[in-house]
Design a protein around this nucleic acid. Sequence first.
DNA 1: CAATGCACCGAAACCGGTTTCGGCAACAAA
DNA 2: TTTGTTGCCGAAACCGGTTTCGGTGCATTG
Lengths: 384, 384
Amino acid sequence: MTTNLSYPLINHSSQMTVSGRVKLDELAAHLGLSKSTVSRALNGYSDISPVTRARVEKAARALGYRPLSHAQAIRTGQVRAIAMVLNSEEPDQHNPFLQDFLAGACQAASSLDWTMTISTATSEKDTLKVLSRLYQERKADGFILPRTAVKDARIGLLRSLDVPHILYGRTGYGQPNKWDETSWFDIAGESAMRNAVLRLNEFGHSRIGFVGSDPKFNYAHLRRDGYAEGMQAAGLPLDTDLIREGARTREDGASQGRALMALECPPTAIVFATDLAALGFCADAQDQGFEIGRDISVIGYDGVPECQYARPALTTFSVDSRKAGQRLATLLIQQIQGADPSTLQELVDATLVTGGSDGPPRLTPEELAQKRQYLTNQKRGDLT
Amino acid sequence: MTTNLSYPLINHSSQMTVSGRVKLDELAAHLGLSKSTVSRALNGYSDISPVTRARVEKAARALGYRPLSHAQAIRTGQVRAIAMVLNSEEPDQHNPFLQDFLAGACQAASSLDWTMTISTATSEKDTLKVLSRLYQERKADGFILPRTAVKDARIGLLRSLDVPHILYGRTGYGQPNKWDETSWFDIAGESAMRNAVLRLNEFGHSRIGFVGSDPKFNYAHLRRDGYAEGMQAAGLPLDTDLIREGARTREDGASQGRALMALECPPTAIVFATDLAALGFCADAQDQGFEIGRDISVIGYDGVPECQYARPALTTFSVDSRKAGQRLATLLIQQIQGADPSTLQELVDATLVTGGSDGPPRLTPEELAQKRQYLTNQKRGDLT
DNA sequence: CAATGCACCGAAACCGGTTTCGGCAACAAA
DNA sequence: TTTGTTGCCGAAACCGGTTTCGGTGCATTG
């Protein structure tokens, strides 16, 4: 019958090399070698003569041979993949970082012939479930744990399961030597905050406030400490009235900043632990009639893109997320391949990106308080 | 010796069930069944008695049995993973979308017990290489192709390799029936643009400009056409002077919008194909002294977070990226499992999010031109 | 010349699942 | 009773690689 020709009758010899994958068997047959020899040649075993190895490698390239990763995995136990689980329900997602971060991590992984799988979870508990499922099914050989908390259940889980993992950020604030055994990569937020204070002090500010982030995250404590260190280094008194915490969103930043501005003796400069909070404050303060960078100086942290598009542009300490991803992936893979986790710890500095949001104080705290009073009255007048 | 007790000596019987994985063998032995029976019971074969199946499933749950995905893959040929390759060097990355998009895609994949692996490439060519490597090694069973171009090499490659794939966006603009065989999911940017024009017309605008995106992307054409349709539906003439293209960044948006404003008879409203371009224009126009939403109305498209933090907030057509990711993953998995690609095509509308960036025109085009002249002179005055 | 060592390679086991195939019991039909 | 069926399960092959182990052939040594 010649009716059923919807499926082509072509593909005789060519098909095998075009669409059909070459497998180890076929490569070996093509070379007149056994598949064990070919496998060992490709995997760098020493009991293969240099001539044979070269011949095998050449043929493999020519035929476009690529081992199936899961076929190797079944014997080696490694899938050559790392994974990261994001908590998609966090109010302040690491939104803008993600693209860069992934670019860095993927690039590093790819260059070592590894891949990156990602997953999302809806809660802290769900994260644990996803992590263990991923590892149980061996979708990944190790994990990057972003946004480490002071007390982080993920670390306990993975450590008890003896699964390789690396932290983006440190953990165990206040518990000395807590993170000695785990590997991590982090940006030195503490020294950035310290430098922010010193910079403001050089501008002439002496009353400098701080708006921190959620204390459940480890970085929140480090940055607050950095601010305190900076104050100390500048020889300024540490006034607890000037320290606020728990600002995660723009709205938080606005309200916490507003609280600082409402002090009897308000700060002429505020350091924010995150750009988001800083941006929220700036918008709100401008609405009230304050001039950012003149009436009140602001410095943020993170380096989100919005900083440069805000007006005035926000002075901030920018984090190189791409590099972070790249280093984290690299270090994690090293760990999976046997490196001692305690040797895989890196601390990198953020870089200052100046905008117009900070500068010499135009007003003293007292004058600022007066302006605040004036603006409030004016607004009240508007309403009536 | 009692010295080397840093490593615990516990883990006798418990170890096997806690940290050690149970494998099929062990589960079968535990049940007194053969592993083939257990496997078929878990995979829904019909030649297993209901009683046995229930017993197996219960035991599997109790022992926490989870098959190694790569061990299954070696026989089934499927790794239960989908992948997406991002081009990390694009000037306008789909930054803010990514987090939501991934959340949607991962959630959909997870709920079907699939995973999502992502990778980045540095160029169009590199993307092709990464795609084929990923598939050669069977890191994924299919791919999501984001940001489809009019003529997209990725589609050709995957189609020729007979690899399942789904497009985020359509392709082949101008070549009818071009995308009939491929599955895709897209947001109806054309109807959004159309509605944007109609909305502005209802406000009273009759001279409405358009700033489009890079014509290499398929959506750029669709959105432009949508704008044209809107003009036609509103009974307005289609003036090619009012149409600009190729704005990918904020800066592009600013300069293209500026060009429209420089017309003898400038538009009193501009529809932008992307929020980024719209935001760039708004900032620039404000710098010049124009009042957004009064002097000139602006509508964007995408729904990036910055829209609501801009002042005035940008009226835009918001894309539900999470849903997009979710649908794309779902459809792709269906396709991998045998569904006909041509039946897997979905078009969803964007939703209007109003801000203060548009409204009734305060000035006629002539008056706007005068204001422009005035502002220019004033600025010139400033400089001297 | 026999014995030893070494470089190099092939045969076969192995990894942890899936799938094919055949067999045994029980039951129905002849 | 014999002869199919049918329901249910086990043995073994299989997937595509990796790794172990043993065995050549050749050079070296005593």
